[in-house]
Design a protein around this nucleic acid. Sequence first.
RNA 1: CGGGGUGUAGCGCAGUUGGUAGCGCGCUUGCUUUGGGAGCAAGAUGCCGCGAGUUCGAGUCUCGCCACUCCGACCA
Length: 479
Amino acid sequence: MADKQKMVDAITSMDEDFAKWYTDIVKKAELIDYTSVKGCMVIRPYGYAIWENMQKILDGMFKATGHENVCMPMFIPESLLNKEKDHVEGFAPEVAWVTHGGNEKLEERLCVRPTSETLFCEHYANIVQSYRDLPKLYNQWVSVVRWEKTTRPFLRSREFLWQEGHTIHATAQEAIEETERMLNVYATFCERDLAMPVVKGRKTDSDKFAGAEATYAIEALMHDGKALQAGTSHYFGDGFAKAFGIQYLDKENKLVHPHQTSWGVTTRLIGAVIMTHGDDNGLVLPPAVAPVQVAIIPIAQHKEGVLDAARAVRDRLAEKFRVKLDDSDNSPGWKFSEYEMRGVPVRLELGPRDIEAGNCVLVTRHNREKTVVALDNLEEAIAQKLQEVRDGLYAAALENREKRTYDCKTIDEINAKLAENGDGFVRALWCGDEACEDKVKELTGVGSRCIPFDGQGQEGTCVCCGKPANTLVYWGKAY
RNA sequence: CGGGGUGUAGCGCAGUUGGUAGCGCGCUUGCUUUGGGAGCAAGAUGCCGCGAGUUCGAGUCUCGCCACUCCGACCA
């Protein structure tokens, strides 16, 4: 098939080696560069622009749901980190420590934040006294550090960019609603803007955030059939409040503990976009976050009038879209390949023949479909094409997920499906026993990803032990 | 943290029994080209990952370290 043809040979094909395909893309599309510190990468302009677009949309959604941005320090004193037992146990193995200031050894070592619950709690303890002070709906856009052992660009780095929302509420009910609200914000963003279908669900106890009462997540399936956690939202109950001494006087003049949440998404979403939509010719970016939505390629640009016409089109389109005119002296063929590799959703070709006819050629990245359109109503045509790209990407990603989702009743069935069809999501009932959860992973290689919100209430038997079970679990190999 | 692979020009790689470093792409300049990674010509570019050791001599041999990468275990 012509649309399957590989035009960019600088990129290893997906089928040949998915991992290499991924690293080829992040390098060749100039998203990142490595540095001399393991697990710490330079996010280059093109990669950072994707993140900025994600930030802009998400930040708007946060503001629309009443949140305010703040900025916490990056250091956490050891004694502060130690205040909540589960939390410190969860994070201590992977924190980086600062032990010296200049040449002086510090009285108390400071950890570089792996997450900021403790800092928010310390602050909330200072500013929350009355029910009138609640809720506080805070968010911050910062980087955090976790000393990971094996690292991969965007998917697992030692320092990564994220947003972390931290809210504190008068009642458990309010906090639970907040936890769900923000999970839904993430799901909407992923599906609408990133064109990436996600499964919403709750994590099993063994997979819960350190210190949380309940952890919710959205799980996406990558092109190779592996699962990627794309966002999380945690309900803390009043556990942190108790550990950090956060109390307020309620309307009855009683001193009580408030309830908290936290939720986050990271630059891992860039990795998710790459592995959900990319193909053998490189990146394919959903229009909502693509740094360049329309790449204008002049044809025979040395000829009289071509560049002027191209510039006029660019100036016109720039009012509505993120547009780039490439008037470099590379050949048109080179430019086609280049912008395909960079995942630009729509390419606009403009040559002498088009100009004479009052037309241009639009080519959509995901299916390489060419359309000749009149310059007159170009804005409309492009808006429609961008929508087509988004919808096409979503449909393809959903199709891949459905093709790779297996309903299984036994361990043997899981192994058979995975062997026959490749990695993917396994849907199977679970009795709730952690021993079974571990055993499934040991025997099949797939771990529990989440307990989905929909699809519950089925009666049956545990995929592992055979005892009665009614909890449906999505299992998968995870990034 | 365990197991494998790789470090030589910006990128991809070659470099024989140890003898003082090369190819392709890219880059610079000029001309010709331009509807799917153009052609010719002339150029520039190296702490051969880092540190010890063996040797008259190390990109090459020995030891140590570091980084990247893949596969596991752990995690956004």
